[in-house]
């Protein structure tokens, strides 16, 4: 009688301890995962901040203006260049489209080249 009870208890102990250690183990690894992820979140936040700051630095209006003056032929927008949807039909400039040739090796490059030629 006692022997059977003991046997059951020992067995129960073994089973219970197996599950507990299993649980303990997964909890530990879960905690490590949380820690790791939080560190990564922090890192990502830091780099996000750094990148937004850098974006701000690179999109400084004076820098954009300087680059535009150097590389583009742009002018200050005058009132005559702004039109409403109603006038769209009568005000569209006549321009033949330059379509990319899908067979060419560098279709977009070709279009850009053609546009430059057309401008000159």
């Amino acid at each position: 009688m006692f022997r059977l009870l003991n046997a059951i208890l020992v067995l129960g102990l073994l089973v219970a301890s197996y599950f507990i250690y299993n649980l303990e183990h997964s909890t530990r690894s879960g905690e490590r995962e949380i820690e790791r992820l939080q560190a990564r979140i922090k890192e990502e936040r830091e780099s996000y901040k750094l990148l937004t700051a850098e974006w701000s630095l690179l999109t400084r209006p004076d820098r954009i203006q300087h680059l535009a003056e150097k590389h583009l032929k742009l002018m200050v927008l005058t009132s005559g260049q702004v039109i409403g949807p109603a006038e769209l039909e009568t005000r569209l400039p006549e321009e033949h489209l330059i379509l990319p040739d899908p067979e060419a090796a560098d279709p977009i490059g070709d279009v850009l080249k053609k546009m430059e030629e057309a401008e000159q």
Binding site: Q65, A68, E69, M75, V76, T78, S79, G80
Partner: peptide, 16 residues
């Protein structure tokens, strides 16, 4: 105004 603008062909350059 539109007539005046059409006659005016010296728009400023960027940043002017």
């Amino acid at each position: 105004d539109a007539v005046k603008l059409a006659g005016k062909t010296e728009p400023g350059t960027a940043g002017d």
